[in-house]
Design a protein around this nucleic acid. Structure first.
Length: 199
DNA sequence: TAGGTGATCTTG
DNA sequence: AAGATCACCTAT
């Protein structure tokens, strides 16, 4: 607990494995002196190689997704539906466009700050259960595009270990357009955790 | 269950 | 240069 994960850890070439191993780890931000932390309870893997659901499918590099081609350990944040900032962890080696979408966290620290950012009065599931709301709670914006995850403002710490049998693998959400790749079991969540976005 | 929202990408 | 698309959320 408490140790910042090194950049090299993210450079594993198996993105699904990284997505799984991120469960239980702690996503942290310190923005303008406001410290917030949440335990990662839900992730999805995306691969630039043979995955139609991925922005960088077929090694398609664009202005939006180019950071995915950098070495693992950088932040890929993009605006979705004109409103929502979605946070991904870039994985694999430089040149391989893989990333893990963080879909839900369990609030750990800085809850008051999270409530304020979300304009909420009490702690409920909608505080951080969902890729857009967790980014808002932790103050993650497209400003953080390309930020290294060993920086002072955004990082991941070691967390609890979970046995393999406590992890559920299922299909990803919102990728129906991806044809056969929509069937990949690349969504992972901690079984019976109350902060998972959807069961 | 439907509509808001605007950057990004693709097509023409 | 314009239109379709979109890794979602909130409120009816």
């Amino acid at each position: 607990m408490g140790n910042k994960i090194e950049m090299s850890w993210y450079q594993n070439s198996n993105v699904a494995e990284v997505a799984k191993q991120l469960l239980g780890k702690i996503l942290c931000t310190n923005i303008d002196g406001k410290l917030t932390k949440g335990k990662i309870v839900e992730t999805e893997a995306y691969s630039g190689d043979n995955d139609k659901a991925c922005h960088a499918n077929n090694q398609n590099k664009t202005k939006r997704n180019h950071v995915m081609f950098e070495a693992g350990g950088h932040a890929y944040v993009y605006l979705c539906y004109g409103i929502h900032h979605l946070f991904n962890v870039v994985t694999n080696k430089e040149g391989s466009a893989d990333a893990v979408l963080i879909r839900a966290v369990e609030p750990i620290e800085g809850v008051e700050i999270m409530l304020k950012r979300r304009k909420m009065r009490s702690v409920e599931k909608k505080l951080t259960a969902g890729p857009a709301v967790l980014s808002q709670a932790l103050g993650i914006l497209t400003d953080h595009y390309g930020t290294a995850l060993n920086s002072e403002s955004l990082w991941v710490e070691e967390g609890e270990l979970h046995n393999e049998d406590k992890i559920v693998s299922t299909t990803r959400i919102g990728v129906d357009y991806a044809e056969e790749d929509a069937l990949k079991l690349w969504r992972f969540y901690i079984k019976e955790n109350a902060w998972v976005s959807r069961f």
